[in-house]
C-alpha cells in the first residue's frame, strides 16, 4: 500500500518533533547502557586502554565485604525509611482530610523540606546532630537524658540519624500523594457506613485503607527506589562512615569510579542497583495488575 502524501508529510514532521529526544535516547541512554555492559567485563583506570578481564570485576565486587556492608545498610534503610515515611505521611493525610484551622500553614510546612537544596539542608542536619553543642543533644540533655548518643559519629546511631533526615525530606511528597488518593475516595462510601453506624476506626479500616491500597503500594515502591538512590545526604553528613556504617550502593559506585578509578567494579555495582530497581518495579507491575483486576 502506498502512503498518501499527507501521511508522508506527517511522518517527516513527527520525526523532526521527536528527533532531539530520539537522538538523546540513542546517545545518552542506549549507547551508554551497552557501553556499561562492556565496562563490567573490563579493567579500566582511564589512563591505559581498557583490558578484558572476564568475570573478575564481578568476583571482586561480590567478594568485597564493603559491598555487602552497603547492601546490608540499604536493607536497614529500607526497613526504617519505607514503613516510617509511609505511616507518617499517611497519618498526616488522614488527619488533614477534614476542615481544620491553619491548614495552609501545615501544608506549607510539610512541603518545604522536599523543595530545598539537599546539600544545604544536609549541612543543617549535620549541625543539629553535633554531639557537643548540637541543638538536638542540648535538648535531650535538657529533658534529663544525661548521656545522649553521638549520632552521626556513632556506628550504631548514624544509620538512624541519616534515616530521620531521609524521612524528613520525603514526607511532604508522599503526603501529597496520599492526600490526593484520599480525595479520590467517593464520599458516598463514608455516608453509607455512617448510616450503618460505623465509627471512625472501622471506616478507616474497611473503607480508607482498602481504597488506598494501590496508592500505598505505589508509595512503597517509590520509597524503595528513593532508598536505592540515596547519595547527597549521606555523602555530606557522614561520607559513609563511621566504619562504613552508613555507606550506600550509590556511594560505592561513586567511590570506585571517581576516587579509585576502577570503572569496571563501579559498573558492576551499578548493574546490581539496576537489578534491584528492576525487581521492585517488576513486583509493582505484577501486584498492580492483581489489584486492578481483583
Amino acid at each position: 500500500m502506498k502512503m498518501s502524501r499527507r501521511q508522508k508529510k506527517e511522518n517527516i514532521f513527527s520525526y523532526i518533533f521527536i528527533g532531539p529526544q530520539l537522538i538523546g535516547f540513542l546517545c545518552f541512554v542506549a549507547f551508554p547502557l551497552f557501553f556499561s555492559i562492556y565496562l563490567c567485563f573490563s579493567y579500566w583506570n582511564f589512563i591505559d586502554l581498557p583490558v578484558y578481564v572476564g568475570g573478575e570485576n564481578f568476583a571482586a565486587v561480590f567478594r568485597d565485604p564493603i559491598f555487602w556492608k552497603s547492601m546490608g545498610n540499604t536493607l536497614i534503610y529500607i526497613c526504617i525509611v519505607v514503613p516510617l515515611t509511609l505511616l507518617t505521611s499517611l497519618i498526616l493525610a488522614l488527619l488533614t482530610n477534614r476542615k481544620l484551622p491553619f491548614m495552609k500553614f501545615y501544608r506549607a510546612a510539610f512541603f518545604l523540606p522536599m523543595v530545598t537544596s539537599t546539600v544545604a539542608i544536609s549541612m543543617v542536619w549535620l549541625f543539629i546532630y553535633q554531639p557537643y553543642g548540637g541543638v538536638l543533644n542540648t535538648i535531650l540533655e535538657g529533658i534529663g537524658i544525661s548521656n545522649p548518643p553521638h549520632w552521626l559519629q556513632d556506628e550504631f546511631w548514624a544509620r538512624f540519624a541519616v534515616s530521620i533526615v531521609m524521612i524528613w525530606l520525603k514526607i511532604g511528597y508522599y503526603y501529597i500523594i496520599f492526600d490526593a488518593g484520599l480525595k479520590n475516595i467517593p464520599t458516598e462510601l463514608y455516608e453509607a457506613a455512617e448510616i450503618d453506624g460505623a465509627n471512625a476506626f472501622t471506616k478507616i479500616k474497611n473503607i480508607t485503607l482498602p481504597m488506598l491500597s494501590s496508592v500505598m503500594f505505589f508509595v512503597s515502591v517509590m520509597l524503595f527506589i528513593d532508598v536505592f538512590n540515596m547519595f547527597n545526604e549521606v555523602y555530606i553528613m557522614t561520607a559513609g562512615g563511621p566504619n562504613y556504617s552508613t555507606y550506600t550502593l550509590s556511594m560505592y559506585i561513586y567511590f570506585y569510579a571517581f576516587t579509585e578509578f576502577d570503572m569496571g567494579r563501579a559498573a558492576v555495582a551499578s548493574w546490581v542497583l539496576f537489578a534491584l530497581v528492576g525487581v521492585v518495579t517488576l513486583i509493582q507491575f505484577k501486584v498492580k495488575k492483581r489489584l486492578v483486576y481483583e
Binding site: 529526544q21 542497583l273 539496576f274
Partner: peptide, 21 residues
C-alpha cells in the same frame, strides 16, 4: 515503548559510561 522502558534505568548505570564519553 523504548522510551517508557528507560524510565526505570537508574542514573547510576549510565553516568559511568557518560563520564567516559
Amino acid at each position: 515503548s523504548l522510551f517508557i522502558a528507560c524510565l526505570m534505568i537508574p542514573g547510576q548505570v549510565t553516568i559511568l559510561p557518560l563520564f567516559v564519553i
